[in-house]
Design a binder for these strands. Structure first.
Lengths: 146, 146
DNA sequence: TATTGTTATACTCTATAACTATA
DNA sequence: TATAGTTATAGAGTATAACAATA
């Protein structure tokens, strides 16, 4: 099979998308025997870090819409990783259970290994430049940002 | 609503994902009155650049699996942007039609505007560093890379 | 036997609209 | 009126397995 030219390779957006796909694929593989999806992991970690936060606050922090938080939280509760208590009639305070805290710790351990596989490929100064540039790109927020 | 802390913000993978989401959202908005999805645009541009390429070759170039190329190509043909001729019994040569070439030119014009919105936010030297780093991250390919 | 295109299918993430019950 | 959580639903991208026709 012939290898085609691809002018898209010059584009920041396209390269971001392709690189992120590789990162995500590696992350999913990191989680393969962990029975948690990426969105569930990030949700768990933010709750662990912010006891008694609300579902909407978590969604805001990780850019997942309220409606899409529902099944994620449901699954975390179902698995006994998160517990919630009612604050007022419409808000729920989320906390990780002891099992959830343990799961979060293991998630962080795996994330560290995953991260290292990529960070190690970059010159330290370049890595810092990239890590500084990404929030700048993020800040070009579109109006409908969750 | 309280703003939560989020240790994930320190992570390369997480920042890549968030920044790419903003990029993609902006790109989709760029295409909103264009009636083409991102995958269709990239497919069209690669075919325009590589006349008589095969469906599998395009998929290889842009990391879309053969099976998922089928509806993309079908839609491009249906819209009269791409034509295909049989090469041998199993391969098809893809080319853009005149209408497809025109559509590709307009896509490039829109992509340039979209790109500029993000490139302009970065210091030129930092942009070059980022553009050099992304293919390095991509090269940490996982085995199952399309 | 390996490859090209195809079908069918399922999963993950994302998006919107509308509902409820509170505040 | 606005907010928190929910339901239902749709779209986009991606993944696998299996098949036919062909090389």
């Amino acid at each position: 099979m012939a290898i085609l030219t691809n002018a898209l390779d010059k584009l920041l957006g396209y390269q971001m998308r392709r690189a992120t796909a590789v990162l995500m694929s590696d992350f999913v593989r990191t989680l393969s025997d962990f029975d948690m999806r990426p969105a569930e992991v990030t949700t768990l970690l933010v709750i662990a870090e912010n006891p008694d936060c609300s579902q909407s606050e978590v969604g805001e922090a990780i850019a997942i819409k309220r409606a899409n938080m529902v099944p994620i939280i449901a699954r975390l509760i179902e698995r006994g990783l998160v517990a919630r208590t009612r604050v007022d009639g419409r808000s729920l305070a989320l906390r990780v259970t002891p099992a959830g805290a343990k799961q979060a710790a293991e998630a962080w351990r795996r994330i560290a290994l995953h991260e290292a596989r990529f960070r190690d490929r970059l010159d330290p100064a370049d890595l810092q430049t990239v890590l500084a540039a990404l929030p700048v790109l993020r800040s070009v927020a579109d109006e409908g940002d969750a």
